[in-house]
Design a protein around this nucleic acid. Structure first.
Lengths: 163, 163
DNA sequence: GTAGATATACTCGGATACGAGATGTCCGAGTGCGAACGG
DNA sequence: CCGTTCGCACTCGGACATCTCGTATCCGAGTATATCTAC
C-alpha cells in the first residue's frame, strides 16, 4: 500500500506553477528539470493533472502548463485524486457472502461493519487533504523556505521564460 | 494505491476466531474454507498476523490459530499493520533537495509542508482505525447479521472442532 | 511597409515496454497424539 | 491393566513461481510563431 511518487511531484509542481506570471505556461521538460526528475514520466503525471482539471495545457510553441484555478480553490485532495484516482484504498470484496455460512446477497445491501470502519477512516483522511489548499502550501513555503532559495527559484524561472 | 485484500480476510478471521472456546485453535485450511479463500494464501496472512502478535499459533496435531489478546485489546489498526506493515502511505522523497534550486540537506531537518500535510492526514486515518476494537466489530456483527446465520456459523465451527 | 499564406519548430497526448511488489503455491521443519509394547 | 516409548500424522513456517499495477519511455497529433512572398 504505497502512494505513487507522482503525487509528491505534482504537489511541488503546482507550487512552482503558482509563481508563473498571468497567462504564461511552463513546459514539461522545464518542470522536470527544476526538480531533476525523468521528463517523460513527469509529462505523464502532468497529463493526469490536466485531465482532472487541476492544471490547463497550452499546446504549440511557447505553450506549457498553468494552474487552471486560483490556488485557494485547489486542494491537496484534488492533486492526489488526479494522480491516484478517486477509488477507495480499502475495497470490500464481500467475503461475508462466501463459504458454507455465507450471507445471501439480499442481506448485504449495507456495507459490512469492517468496510464501514475503513470507510470512515478513509473519509477522515480525505477530509484532511481537502482542508489543505494549494494557497496554504504556498504560504507555508514562503515562510519556511530559505529566502535566498526562493529568490533563486524566481530568478531561474524568469530566465527560462525569457528564452 | 490499493490495500491488500488480506486485510479484509484477516479482520473477518479475527471475528471467527473470537467464537472459539478458550484454549482451542483453528487451523488455516478450515479458516480458508469458512470464507472460501485460497488456503495457501490465507495461511500466509495468518503467519503475518502471528508474527505481529495479533494471533498465536499452536503447532502439531490439533493445533491451529487463536487470538492472543482479548478482543477489546486488539484494534483494526493492529490487524492492518500486521498485513500491510507499519510504513507510511505517502513517502517523501525530498525532491526539494533536487535540481538547480535544490535546498541543501542541512536545511531539510524538518519534513516539508507537503509531507507534513500528508502525515497529518495519515495520522487521522490511523487514529480512526485504532479507535475500532475487535470487540466493537464482534458486537456489531452480533447486532447486524441475521441470527440464523450466526447460529449456523457456530454450529459449523463446533462440528469442525469435534472432528 | 504591410497583410496573408505557408512552412516549421515546438508543444501536448496517448500507445507502448519494463520492473517491482502483491498475489498465489509448494515443500520442509517442528510438535502433539495415539498406537504398540513391555512390565 | 497401566506406564513408557516410539512412530506418525498433522500443523505451521519460510522459500519459490506468477501476475497485476506502477514506473518509464517514445513517437505521432495539433498549434502558435516566424518567415517569406506578394501587393
Amino acid at each position: 500500500m504505497k502512494m505513487s511518487d507522482g503525487v509528491e511531484w505534482a504537489a511541488h509542481t503546482c507550487i512552482l506553477l503558482s509563481f508563473l506570471p498571468e497567462g504564461r505556461g511552463l513546459n514539461a521538460p522545464t518542470i522536470a528539470e527544476y526538480h531533476d526528475l525523468p521528463p517523460a514520466y513527469m509529462a505523464k503525471h502532468l497529463q493526469a493533472l490536466a485531465k482532472d482539471g487541476v492544471i490547463t495545457s497550452i499546446r504549440g510553441a511557447g505553450g506549457g502548463y498553468r494552474l487552471s484555478k486560483s490556488p485557494a480553490e485547489t486542494t491537496l485532495w484534488d492533486i492526489t485524486r488526479a494522480i491516484e484516482g478517486g477509488g477507495q484504498i480499502f475495497r470490500c470484496s464481500e467475503i461475508r457472502q462466501n463459504g458454507p455460512c455465507g450471507a445471501p446477497k439480499k442481506d448485504c445491501k449495507r456495507p459490512c461493519d469492517i468496510a464501514s470502519a475503513f470507510l470512515r477512516a478513509e473519509t477522515a483522511w480525505r477530509d484532511h487533504l481537502k482542508a489543505v489548499s494549494l494557497l496554504d502550501l504556498i504560504k507555508a513555503y514562503q515562510v519556511n523556505a530559505d529566502p535566498k532559495r526562493v529568490a533563486d527559484s524566481h530568478a531561474w524561472l524568469e530566465a527560462k521564460l525569457r528564452k
